[in-house]
Design a binder for these strands. Structure first.
Lengths: 351, 351
DNA sequence: CGCACGCATCGAATCGATTCGAGACATGTG
DNA sequence: CACATGTCTCGAATCGATTCGATGCGTGCG
């Protein structure tokens, strides 16, 4: 179907009685063509049903595909997070402004789905998912001469966009501290590729951990808050927060505050608290991170830190474009803003 | 960067002392190459840092790009729907099995974002969003010789995967009817591109409407249930269902049952009912569609119809592959299953 | 021993455009 | 009128691979 019978630029040129070069100029607009000739070429194109130059041939000649790879995890889980979604939209905006397409690539931390990474045509790649410090996947791309942009991760040789989550978390933890909380538990994002979930005895600095997981916990320490417990989840999902809270809240000395590293996790914590009959924030304070709108939690609003997710995606796209234009990989950090809610209050006096 | 200095297959061949054809055979594996030669070529490739044949050149020669376009709306709104997400994952599975990449294309009903549709390299396109009967976008693709698969829509010349939503809805409406409900309102999916939202006086058959919107409402009629009112929303979102319910429930003769055309809409209706102090299902019965898991609605579970969303995506991918192999566009319909919940009960006796 | 056959390799054509430098022609200037 | 300038068009090389048919060579069979 696709192959047979489709007209080529050469066919059009022949019918219009001009050279292939002139026909090409007519379509690309990158050279002078007299109005009369242009008309003739366009008429010939219409007659042959020629719908523009073949993108593959054009790309080959130009040496660029006009496509940026967007690397994610399993889509259903990855995109369930509103933050990722907003980031993706921002990314699409920025890339769309340059007429660049997005090639969606699912590639896990263990190396699944690397086929496209190895073989697909792209001018740059943007990682929408965290990249572990030990992952080979970034090298796979740079070996191919493909520029890489990381969101919320770091890797030598790759550009990256981060948010100021450490200071944002520190400020938030400062509020928690100032309200008198002393038993503060943390519900963490995934620790590192392949690491188990659940309570983590030693949640100190760890070279192999995802940088943003590290940073958010480091922020808490920065405020002088030492978590009594850290529960590591498998991802930023409501269910995960729910499970974590069930564990953290059903013990003898339960925390007076739970700081979750994302709003979805915090939402899960809140649901668990409700189910256990705990009043929030009287019996338990809860904080999140991201600044996601969760109307269905009404009347509660999570005390959180707002991150510019859309902007992050946009900057990621612009960084990719800059690299393609020959720029050097750069690091960018975006500021965050505290978002007051209804789930953070003074520590219970009897605690 | 990308251009300069990268080794080509010809360079590798030269260094290995073989012809370009042999080098090509070594990488593609589609011809006999002696082990010794293979070794030599691979060694040369390693030495030059050659990471496999250029995908663009390969594609041009082969006449296929290995990419399938996936057309959606605005991503953040499109992917907020869990059904779409599961469909996307199924699609990714099927395409991944054939080593095909997914080019994500945002293209609205009004024709925005058509650049990529017109210019991007792809072997087929799958519409993840509904396609209105009057949209030109499908023609844009078929004119380019690109095969099109529609999910939940119909268009001449395009393959399509549908679910048996009409009969599924009819069965569900049958249950509502048998429980004695006589005042049944409907919260509908978007009507047609550009159509206003809100109460729709005449919600009868309409050529310009989205087919699946039509089908679900037709299903209700099939069961002998005549909706007292139809509220058209802007999309399958919780907020939209909430708004719709606020309107439907704050009138003198309020419905005893609201049939929403998606679970997210139904969730919004349920939240609105709770806020208005209505007991569900004692005062109001609610039904949905899709079979989405909404744990945060606990303890309620929407009475709904389960659709095989993942399977739908898989079949969409397989249909695309079949078309690329020269197959004829076909229509497929998938069965659905009733999912009992807690939100459907007998009509109030005083009604 | 001669012939046919199979395996490994190579040459050359091809996929469909873009682009650079050169040529043809018309116009404007001294 | 000669010459410089500018506008439009063309030819040919190129992007980087794939693939078909041909060739050379060693082996098994009659």
């Amino acid at each position: 179907m696709t192959r047979h019978g489709r007209a080529t630029l050469a066919d059009v040129a022949r019918l219009a009685g001009v050279s292939a070069s002139t026909a090409s100029l007519t379509f690309s607009g990158s050279g002078p063509v007299s109005p009369a000739t242009r008309e003739r070429v366009l008429a010939a194109a219409k007659e042959l049903g020629f719908s523009g130059p073949d993108p593959l041939a054009r790309s080959l000649r130009r040496g660029e595909s006009g496509v940026v790879g967007v690397i994610t995890n399993e889509l259903a889980s990855s995109f369930r997070d509103p933050v990722t979604l907003r980031t993706l939209d921002g990314l699409a905006d920025a890339l769309g402004a340059h007429d660049l397409g997005m090639l969606l690539i699912r590639a896990g931390e263990a190396g699944e789905g690397a086929d496209l990474i190895r073989r697909a045509a792209m001018d740059a790649a943007v990682f929408l998912r965290p990249v572990g410090p030990r992952e080979r996947v970034v090298d796979l791309l740079t070996d191919r001469g493909i520029n890489v942009v990381l969101l919320e991760s770091l890797f030598p040789g790759a550009a990256s966009i981060q948010i100021a989550d450490r200071t944002g978390m520190a400020e938030l933890a400062g509020r928690v501290r100032d309200l008198g909380h002393t038993r503060v538990a943390v519900v963490s994002l995934p620790w590192a590729p392949g690491e188990p979930t659940g309570l983590r005895p030693d949640a100190g600095p760890d070279e192999d951990a995802f940088p943003f997981t590290q940073r958010r916990i480091a922020g808490i320490h920065d405020a002088g808050v030492v978590p009594t417990q850290v529960y590591v989840t498998a991802g930023s999902l409501v269910e995960e927060g729910f499970e974590a809270a069930k564990v953290l809240l059903q013990q003898d000395e339960r925390p007076t505050a739970i700081m979750a590293c994302s709003d979805l996790l915090a939402a899960g914590v809140l649901l668990a608290a409700r189910e256990l009959g705990l009043a929030v924030p009287r019996d338990l304070s809860i904080t999140g991170f991201d600044g996601v709108d969760l109307p269905w939690l009404a009347p509660d609003v999570i005390d959180s830190v707002e991150q510019p997710a859309t902007r992050k995606g946009q900057l990621g796209g612009e960084a990719a474009v800059a690299l393609m234009a020959g720029g050097e990989p750069a690091h960018t950090e975006l500021a965050v803003v505290q978002r007051p809610g209804t789930t953070l209050g003074p520590a219970p006096s009897d605690a």
